[in-house]
Amino acid sequence: MSEALLQVEGMKKYFKIKKDQTVKSVDDISIEIKKGETFGLVGESGSGKSTLGKTIVGLQSPTAGRIIYNGVDVETLDKKSKINVNREMQIIFQDPYASLNPRMRVGDIIAEGIDAHNLAKGKARQDRIFELLDRVGLRPEHARRYPHEFSGGQRQRIGIARALAVNPKFIVADEPISALDVSIQAQVINLMEDLKKQEELTYLFIAHDLGMVKHISDRIGVMYLGKMMELANSYDLFAEPLHPYTQALLSAIPVANPKAAKRERIVLAGDPPSPVNPPSGCRFRTRCPHAMSICAEVVPAWKEVKPNHWTACHLYN
């Protein structure tokens, strides 16, 4: 595929919670997202996937690491170019109820970015709002209404229109469909796929619904307790998961077919450990069915085990 749009190098994001306690939400992660691809990011709650997404678009500043956008380190940019990068990177949030200001009209919500970046005024601004509404399958008269007048699926469409308003190149979608009903999820996913084609977008798609992530993504990264466990293109990851965590995660997806041969389900014992005090060595070892003595001592190296299929696990050393 084509060149990288975004490179994340050694990104760390730590949160101090008490005097001498830090949560290592994202701990030394490097990924590369190519132009025009959809990169899926999966992991359980607390794995740091949303933190990674928010840090990439600049909603939080990283504790360490570099974000390279279009070949340039974002930190080194002057103010003006930085604003431009911020415009090109947008985010769609999970909760369509909490992420829209209830006191603003939908038209103004959508136009907030347009106003902030001074992209259009007066009639042009109005036309742009109508065009965006149309793009996401809403009607012009919706611009005058308030968020509470919309259903969850429609609100998510408004969130998408807001992100599109400033002509972004890269969109982080942070669990965009988790709060929606099944039949509505498919509508939003199809919309996102259409927009990607029309606007030549690149997505970072964060979710915990593995089925949807597989459907929409070209490549998928699996996170656990702030670390990347495995990375491969989506078909390979599902056909041949290498890391024991990925294997367990995939086997836990309930399949909507009672006749499907009952697969061997790997039920993980226990809960994920607290990110305040993660296990030494490999972070997954406390729940791993294949844990060996080395796993407690040495952090497994990030290795390309098969072509374009990376994992961090001592089983493949």
Binding site: G153, V182, S183, A186, Q187, I189, G211, M212
Partner: peptide
Amino acid sequence: WGLMESIPDTNAAHKSRLVPIEGS
């Protein structure tokens, strides 16, 4: 049928477009 069609098939090798239930 609509409910069944709107969930992606994780076993499929090829991507097919999801078939949502239109409207609300």
